[in-house]
Simulated assay, not measured.
Amino acid sequence: MIHRPKRTAALFTGVLLVGGLTACDPEGLHSAEHAGPFPYESPADTADVDLREALSDYGVRLPEGAEKITYGALKALDGYPFRVEFSMPCDGVPAFVRDSRLVSVGKETPDAVEMSVLDAGFPLDEDPAYVRAKESKLLTVYAAVIERSGTCQVFLSS
C-alpha cells in the first residue's frame, strides 16, 4: 500500500506530460512524417529535387516578394511533374509572366492547375490563365493567377 501513492503520482505526472506534448504538437507525435526533406515542399506533394533546382529546370524565377511558397517536383518520374504555388503583390505579375515566358490563354483555368485552384477554394475560369510560349525551348508550364485584394495567388504546374 505504501507504493500505491507513488505509482498514482507517477501515472498522473505521465498523463500530464503526454497531454502537454499533445497540446504543443496538435498533429500528434508523428507529424514530422508528413514533412518533406526539402524546404517549401508541400505536405500534399512530394519532391526528389529542391525548389531551386526545379525552378531552374523549368526556367522559372520566383518574383521579388513571393510568399507562402509550396511545391512538389519528382524528377525521377517520367515527365518530371512539377507544381509550385506562391502569393505575390499583383503589380509584379506582368513582369513575372514576361520573365517566365508565359503567354495569356484567357480565363479558362488550365487542367494542370485546376485541382490546386479548387483545393485553395477559388472558382475556376474567372482569373487570368497562362501557358509557356510555344516558341520557348523550356519545359511546358501552365499557370493561373488569382487576384484578391491586391495580392495574387499564383499556381504553376507542368
Score class of each variant (00 low, 15 high):
L29K: 06
V117E: 03
A32Q: 09
V145C: 02
D45T: 07
S157H: 01
A10K: 10
E33R: 15
D45N: 12
F122D: 02
H30R: 10
F96Y: 09
G106P: 02
L62Y: 01
F155C: 08
A144H: 06
A44D: 13
V154M: 00
S42H: 12
L62I: 04
S157G: 13
D99P: 01
T109L: 04
G59Y: 01
A129F: 06
V15M: 14
D91R: 14
M115N: 10
R52Y: 05
S157D: 08
T22M: 12
G106R: 02
A133C: 09
E114I: 06
V15L: 15
L156S: 01
K134E: 12
L74F: 04
M1T: 09
A66G: 10
D125L: 03
P128F: 02
G65M: 07
E85A: 13
D99Y: 06
P39Y: 04
A66N: 08
G14N: 12
V97D: 05
T140N: 07
K107W: 02
F38H: 13
F155P: 00
T46D: 10
G121Y: 01
G28E: 05
T8A: 14
E41S: 08
G19Q: 05
L139C: 01
P89W: 05
R52T: 14
A120H: 05
E67T: 12
F96D: 00
T22W: 10
G36V: 10
L77V: 12
F96W: 10
A32M: 08
E147T: 14
K68N: 11
R101G: 06
E67C: 02
C90N: 03
I69S: 03
C152R: 03
R61W: 03
A95S: 13
D125A: 07
A47Q: 11
L102P: 00
G121V: 06
P94T: 12
P89T: 12
Y80P: 01
L29G: 15
T151F: 00
L138D: 14
K137G: 14
A66Y: 04
F82Q: 03
A120R: 04
G150A: 01
V49L: 15
R4S: 14
V145T: 00
E33C: 13
L16H: 09
E41G: 07
L138F: 08
